[in-house]
Design a binder for these strands. Structure first.
Lengths: 103, 103
DNA sequence: GCAGTACATGCCTCGTCGGTTATATTCCCT
DNA sequence: AGGGAATATAACCGACGAGGCATGTACTGC
């Protein structure tokens, strides 16, 4: 398991990241919200940590996980040339609609 | 195999899409450029087609594959809230550097 | 020190995915 | 019609990943 793309392929891991957008959370909180077993969540967190997408802060027995969005830039930059392509076609659609409007 | 995320998890499939950005290509062309066997390429193309990321045009024995970037918007929209987060931190860095500059 | 809480880790199983080889299909050309 | 080119598909295999259960570990409060 290496690339950010593979890490995000798992829907559960995307859910975890989505939850962490609201701020740090302990593992048990994620377990409850995702309706999955604690070991499963811990495993996903391990993968996310290895990818640099989350970091941990320990507080007694609790481990608070926090989001680190930086590695997602890799996806964003890969997407960049494609984004130009579809925005071009959307622009074309828009011009077309505008032209329809004018008549 | 369903989501665009899973489809993009495969590095070879991303390579195929990258090649198709330059325009449509027949399968044999992809085989040569990717240094992989023809059945392997055909399988990836099948997955990409199922995801709506490519479409085919037949011309005699040749099948020309063409890129369809639209499904990638799903990733782009998922990324959107995160993009705001990291651009915020990048802005902070920039302000910091500007402040350094001024002294 | 002990019981309990919060989490990580190890081991096993099962499904799925990617690759390979062999074969089928379709079309062209002579 | 027959041979060859271009591609798809089938059958098989090996690897890997995700989940489940059991257990280990670390910390707390009494």
């Amino acid at each position: 398991m290496a690339s950010v793309f593979e890490v995000l392929a798992e829907p559960r891991r995307r859910e975890i990241l989505d939850l962490l957008r609201d701020g740090e959370r302990p593992v048990g909180d994620l377990v409850r919200r995702l309706h999955m077993t604690q070991p499963a969540v811990s495993k996903h967190l391990r993968v996310l940590r290895a990818a640099g997408l989350v970091e941990v802060r320990q507080d007694a027995q609790r481990r608070w996980y926090r989001l680190r969005p930086e590695p997602l830039t890799e996806i964003d930059t890969w997407l960049e040339p494609y984004r130009r392509m579809w925005s071009a076609s959307l622009d074309a659609l828009e011009r077309h609609l505008d032209a329809m409007e004018e008549r």
